Simulated assay, not measured.
Amino acid sequence: MPQVSNLTNDETFFEIGRLIELLLKNNPSVLELLATPRSHVLFRHPLMDMVDPQLFLSKLCKDTFAGYARTQMHKARGLNKKMNVREAPVRKSVMDFCWVYSDNAIYPLNEWLQYQGIMQEACGLSTMNHFKDCYKLFIQRNMPLNARLNGIVRSAGSNDVNTSEILKGIVPSGVLYFNKDGYSMHCREYREYNEWLEKRNEDRYKTNMSHGGQYDTKNMMHTIRLLSMAEEIARFKQINVFRSDREYLLGIKAGNYSFDELVKIADEKMVLIEEAYDKSSLPEAPDPELAENLLVRIREEFYQL
């Protein structure tokens, strides 16, 4: 197997081939791992001395380090949005996203039903060709005696509108539009908020709220760190795991900057990174032949082939 993890996925073990494969992709975690100073490594197999991370540095780092930083920023933005919710979102129904055109006016569905003095079960819908998410709307009292309508939705928990069989020639009482995309977005945001609420680290959440910035400071600290490392790799061809800007990064983690300030800093760093990689003499990608030869040598010595 190329890699195995423990039950909690807190520890992952790579076969050397998988490690080399990740180096060829300029994986940030693997490059940082191999660049860790020996004074902070508990055990290092002698064969690992053959794996010099500097040999694998390339312009791919712009996308891997800066791309990873964008992921951290995206998480921070998402958490920022969730943390600033004043009230937990209320789960809305399909009917909350429906509108009715009737008598030359447009009404929210629930308001229209109230105005008509009927329940949704006394209505029926039929599809309209070439009009996405639009339906002809019928009322039971305007139908022939033997006609039965199925309601607008099957139940309160339905995720779509319901249609009925309508005889030709019957004039609808209006047209219903179901904002299906809006409903889907609401469901996703509601689900994501509750998943975040269930899984969030309470201590980390309280820390983030206590500094007043109301964003995830750890995510933003890693964003700035990764962007700085990406620029350093382009300019100096080095992976600086031990940070000279440690106090600055800890200040970010402590919440000494507003979220908007950090977004502006990150945007400015992205401009510098683009310039640095345009001028850098780094190769476009690591040398696959060098990697293959290295892998063969390590396996030969380890397995004594």
Rank of each mutant, 00 (worst) to 15 (best):
G169D: 10
G169M: 07
G169Y: 08
V171W: 07
P172Q: 08
P172V: 10
P172G: 11
P172W: 13
S173I: 07
L176Y: 14
N179I: 09
N179V: 11
K180R: 15
K180Q: 11
G182T: 09
G182A: 13
Y183G: 04
M185P: 00
C187T: 08
E189D: 14
R191Y: 15
R191K: 13
E192K: 06
E192H: 06
E192A: 11
Y193P: 02
E195G: 02
E195R: 07
W196G: 00
L197G: 01
L197Y: 13
K199N: 13
R200M: 07
D203G: 02
Y205P: 00
N208L: 00
N208Y: 00
N208T: 00
S210E: 14
Q214Y: 00
D216P: 01
T217Y: 01
K218A: 00
K218G: 02
K218E: 04
N219Y: 02
M220S: 05
M221L: 15
L226R: 05
S228R: 12
M229L: 07
E232L: 14
R235M: 12
R235S: 11
Q238E: 14
N240G: 03
N240C: 05
R243I: 05
S244M: 12
S244I: 12
E247V: 09
E247Y: 08
L249V: 04
G251E: 05
I252A: 09
A254P: 01
G255C: 09
Y257K: 05
S258V: 10
F259Q: 02
V263G: 07
